[in-house]
Design a protein around this nucleic acid. Structure first.
Length: 360
RNA sequence: CCAGAGGUGGCGGAGUGGCCAAUCGCAAUAGACUGUAAAUCUAUCGGGGCAACCCUACGGGGGUUCGAAUCCCUCCCUCUGGA
């Protein structure tokens, strides 16, 4: 049986599937909590490494966890910093070895992360779901390179499991602990990695990072293989997944948790998602093209007093016109990014509501 | 009327004899963005062949020169100060 509900540390139960927008540094860019709540977003994701660097786990621990720190009432999950192993340590500055990772960004203090420290920080953050530190397999990695990252990922996964069992509270609800499958495009390696992680034992498995092939197409073989080798009751989590159609398809294939920067980043970058249907009831996620991109600052919208979408009940669509939004983007006001982000998050939450039927 | 300053591509604004179809910024158009180094980045941006080419272009007209947005003459217009 695929799990049907996600339980927070406070005992709040949320129905799957769940999409958590990224609040990497304990803030969804351009929004405050009342904005996020208005989009009916059930939870958010924060990042271990970023919060470790600022304000520091001690600051947040002292205040009782991120939830209290930022006064967020929904679910809150954390990423380990594993993705930054690739995006920062391997690309910009830093070192990776079996002991852990050091990160060095220009004009920033050096920062270090080990599997144990990542878990300790996440426990201090008091998130509802946490992820093991993993060694990212870069896109296009050879079998040999991929195997090396898999071995290190397994090693770290064991250490994370041990750290979790040692330091997690002995009583009460514990956070979910998620292992991460690496292995790149090598399916047999993905399968092996999955099996070995299951052997160690987790509440679920995640994978992601850069799930596209060379042509930029989403590779659905990888999640399929992971699913085939995972126990029925595992939470399957698409880390950093994905575009709307990708989320829809993975939900249909049994994946239940997602986080992604796309809706929020795209919003700030003037890409809004708009359902092709005229009303919310009319939305059909089974249609091949169920949505379109809307670029808000085009000249042709300067005088358009209609709403961005009639198949949306967000603040932007119920209150403001295309013309007003175009104006806000044109003059570069922050409110443009805010309204666009609210809209895109509502787009995703509507999508997840529609997908809920598949889990009942 | 006199004295200064100036008129450059949709706009702002460089360029003062050839390397200028003309730096750059804005606007416009197209694209990218997937466990956030990102309110970012990339490309195009006079017309046509869409390359090595040709045409129309730097207020109008005329001239000097092998060659002018750049020099000279003249006209028109704008701004500032003075009668």
């Amino acid at each position: 049986m695929t799990p049907t509900q996600f339980e927070t540390l406070d005992g709040v139960k949320l129905p799957y599937p769940l999409f958590f927008p990224d609040a990497t540094r304990a803030v969804v860019k351009a929004l405050d909590n009342t904005d996020i709540e208005s989009t009916q977003t059930p939870g958010i994701l924060v990042n271990t490494l970023h919060l470790h660097m600022s304000p520091g786990a001690d600051v947040i621990k002292k205040q009782g966890g991120v939830r209290k720190f930022m006064d967020w009432h929904g679910a809150i999950i954390s990423d380990s910093g594993g993705f930054q192993v690739m995006s920062i340590a391997k690309n910009v500055g830093g070192k990776v070895n079996d002991q852990g990772v050091t990160f060095q960004l220009p004009n920033q203090p050096k920062s270090k992360l080990t599997p144990e420290l990542s878990i300790k920080i996440q426990l201090a953050l008091k998130t509802d779901l946490m992820v093991v530190l993993d060694d990212f397999t870069p896109p296009g990695a050879s079998l040999e390179e991929a195997r090396a990252t898999v071995e290190r990922t397994i090693l770290w996964a064991k250490q994370c499991r041990e750290a979790f069992d040692t330091y997690a509270p002995k009583t009460g609800k514990k956070p979910y602990l998620i292992g991460v499958v690496q292995g790149g495009d090598h399916l047999e390696l993905r399968a092996e990695c999955t099996k070995r992680l299951v052997e160690i034992g987790f509440d679920g498995l995640g994978y992601g990072g850069w799930p596209m092939n060379d042509r930029g197409d989403f590779n659905y073989d990888v999640p399929r293989v992971i699913r085939e080798h995972s126990p029925e009751n595992y939470i399957l989590y698409g880390l950093g997944v994905g575009k709307p159609q990708e989320v829809v398809r993975l939900v249909k294939e049994g994946w239940s948790v997602f986080d992604c920067v796309l809706p929020t980043r795209d919003a700030r970058h003037k890409r809004l998602y708009v359902y092709n249907a005229k009303t919310i009831d009319g939305i059909d996620l089974d249609e091949e093209k169920f949505y379109s991109y809307y670029t808000p600052d085009k000249e042709k919208y300067y005088r358009d007093d209609s709403p961005v979408s009639t198949a949306c009940d967000c603040i932007l669509c119920t209150r403001y016109s295309k013309s007003y939004l175009a104006h806000l983007f044109r003059i570069g006001d922050m409110t443009a990014g805010r309204l666009a982000t609210i809209h895109n998050l509502r787009f995703y939450s509507i999508m997840m509501e529609k997908l809920r039927g598949l889990f009942e």
